[in-house]
């Protein structure tokens, strides 16, 4: 576990860079992590991030399929928004733990 200052806020991350305390997240932090990943966040990105955070808070196990059925984006669009590992990247940017689903 490490502490890192992102967008002026000290946040706790695990070894793989995922938030250990999702409460510390805000939109500015998300933008900065996304920039590290080479992604510039737009409204659609934020809709996905908020969906993920909401479902995480409800205790759901997240999967690409669930995001695809959310009505926000289809799976292909999700891959375009977060290229090269959509669920993991979006989860990291959304400040929630690493997804544990295999599908």
């Amino acid at each position: 576990m490490e502490e890192k200052t992102i967008a002026g806020v000290k946040v706790a991350l695990n070894e793989e860079g995922y938030f250990t305390n999702p409460e510390q997240w805000n939109e500015e932090i998300a933008k900065e992590i996304a920039t590290e990943e080479g992604i510039e966040l737009n409204d659609k990105h934020f809709e996905v991030l908020n969906f993920l955070r909401e479902k995480f808070n409800e205790g759901e196990v997240l999967s690409i399929r669930k995001v695809g059925n959310s009505g926000i984006v289809n799976i292909k669009e999700l891959y375009q928004l977060f290229p090269g590992g959509p669920l993991k990247k979006s989860s990291r940017i959304a400040g929630i733990p690493k997804p544990s689903s295999c599908v």
Binding site: I64, R65, G68, N74, I75, K76, L78, Y79, P86, V103
Partner: peptide, 9 residues
């Protein structure tokens, strides 16, 4: 649907 997911990726 699973095949579609693979193609989407």
């Amino acid at each position: 649907e699973f095949l579609e997911m693979i193609i989407a990726g």
